[in-house]
Design a protein around this nucleic acid. Structure first.
Lengths: 357, 357
DNA sequence: CTGTTAGCGCATTCAC
DNA sequence: GTGAATGCGCTAACAG
């Protein structure tokens, strides 16, 4: 008790004490008895400094605990690099975004660069705000999984020297680098997989129509049906399911219809989860086949284990940052769209046969 | 094809074009025919500007698409605020960290502040590097879920005006604000819950001993055993399980021992998952009771549904940022440790009775 | 090899 | 109300 109080008291005083002024290059120069420019040389690792001076400067830096002000440095520097990039995602809390974030951080770290992350929540307005905030901070580049429908406004940022790379979703109204999953191919593979297990009544459950990836996955679904000569029945496609609850209800409605599906392709993570909820509630989880797009933790602990078309999220993120850093380094080659292939992972739910087989 | 090529070509030229110089206040002042200071006043919303001049400046800003350089601004500004904070977490890709990140972002947004995120991976060295990077960028404050054992080195940062708030784990060798879960109480409640369902053979599976939260949870486990007059049998406590695989193996070893446990308290997310894997593999998931610390997505889709002691992660994050912004605003009151209560969520796995009841 | 001068983009005195 | 001069912390271009 005594100890605790005294610690608090000590701390209060420490906090109350006027913040100690940070040492500047001038302070270091004065202490080392050299010019400020020599300090700058030592810090930036310029070799043309005598061992003696370098030594004095190094000691002064240590003694004053001098930490160069990066913002001031980049203000003066010719390239103007701030060593910070922005990463704008759907929602940093969802696993897909969080994994992308980690991939970007890993590469940024090698470049001595910090990463700003921000969530767009599918709100175009939020995208504009965050891009603006990023440019006010003069980030060296932006990676974005966009929410907006038109990205023409980014042309200006790119022209003023802030490269932009798109992840997960392609740019619209703008030519820019992008790294995307093979959405149509992955969806096609999933649906063919279900068809090859004998299913003819395969439903599609997907998220917001406005999202480009959702459209690509729907196209893949349709192509697979066509390839197998299966008709697309009315009411078999449910779109605009933003969360598990909506998805669960949409599936419930389908199951209550005259021709309930025997198999599901769920085109997005949360949709998959919602669908599984409904199947479990109705005791149908061993009867209705499911393949989901995008893997998720726990998928192989559920009963049945959930078959998915997995995206290589780390690879998508890594390719995107690498591309961004190439642009930052001055690469002005033509813009590229890179596609990262998906992988079908059969675990059980996708291999459930149709009734009567 | 033709179109695609021509688009690429157009873009290549756009990118190759020398980056357009960004407009500065001087440009705006010249175009508006006022002094640079008047522009500054308009931008900072100082009221003592005539309507006429304000109008001319506003138009010039729009015409030139002027975006003030925040870094330059904060360099000169008295308070030196950069409107960026750092958030250092265990791993931005794990759900706990990702949720914290989102909570911090939400509040930071209200303060017009951007958030740097970084992953420490339980490496003290990485913590030092990231804190240093943050101070080089002169962030306004730091929120940290620390990996290091001693945080005395942060005293210097705090004294030079960079407030630090700890989340999830308390500071050591330093007095600082912190926001933590009620780890011991939560663990105690979980173990009492198992005991009250008739269990006497309750095992503890936890992560790295070096992590303070792990110790608190172990203490809660022991207190609960003591309260119910249950002995702590040797071999019933497994610590230092950093990932699901290690946890799975540790549980397997316990189950193979002479006196296998009837119930498990798994003190961390990944440990819970590993334990469930082993139980499923052995077909024991309906026989061995499990309560996990920290909720996870899918917990209520597993069979049996997983009972947990849930942390209010959003609340922990929100309290931490709010505290940080108070410090940034100049609050120099004594440091506080806030504890956020946990909630026991019975879902099934924790209510499995012991054999023979 | 080293130091001096200038100025990045902006906010702060303090005049007018 | 408005503007001129000064400098935040640092690097660039020169000179020596």
């Amino acid at each position: 008790m005594q100890v605790s109080v005294s610690q608090s008291e000590r701390d209060r005083r420490a906090a109350a004490a006027e913040p100690v002024r940070r040492a500047t290059m001038r302070d270091v120069a004065a202490l080392a008895g050299v010019s400020i420019k020599t300090v700058s040389r030592v810090i930036n690792g310029v070799s043309t400094v005598s061992d003696d001076l370098r030594d004095r400067v190094t000691r002064a830096i240590a003694q004053l605990d001098f930490q160069p002000n990066l913002a001031a440095s980049s203000l003066r520097r010719t390239d103007g690099a701030t060593r910070q990039i922005a990463l704008l995602l759907e929602d940093v809390a969802n696993p897909f975004s969080a994994t992308l974030s980690r991939a970007v951080e890993n590469v940024a770290r090698e470049h001595g660069t910090l990463v700003f992350t921000g969530s767009l929540d599918e709100e175009p307005q939020r995208e504009l705000e965050l891009v603006r905030a990023a440019t006010l901070h003069r980030v060296d580049g932006i990676i974005i999984a966009p929410a907006a429908q038109d990205h023409g406004y980014l042309h200006r940022e790119i022209r003023t020297g802030t490269p932009v790379v798109f992840v997960d979703r392609p740019p619209r109204g703008l030519v820019a680098d992008s790294v995307l999953a093979t959405n149509a191919e992955g969806a096609r593979e999933a649906v063919l997989h279900l068809a090859d297990h004998g299913h003819t009544e395969i439903a599609f459950l997907g998220d917001e129509t406005s999202i480009a990836t959702a459209g690509e996955r729907l196209a893949g679904y349709r192509r697979a049906l066509a390839e197998r000569g299966l008709p697309e029945r009315p009411g078999r496609v449910a779109m605009d399911l933003p969360d598990p609850e909506t998805a669960a209800r949409a599936l419930a409605a389908m199951l209550d219809s005259d021709h309930p599906p025997q198999a599901l392709f769920t085109a997005q993570n949360l949709v998959t989860i919602g669908a599984i909820q409904t199947l479990q509630e109705r005791g149908l989880h061993q009867d209705v086949a499911v393949v989901g797009f995008d893997d998720f933790p726990m998928a192989d602990l559920l009963v049945p284990r959930v078959s998915v078309v997995a995206q290589d999220v780390m690879r998508i993120g890594t390719l995107a940052v690498q591309r961004l850093f190439k642009r930052i380094a001055g690469d002005d080659g033509p813009c590229r769209e890179e596609r990262v292939p998906t992988t079908l992972i059969p675990r059980g739910s996708g291999e459930i046969p149709p009734p009567g087989r």
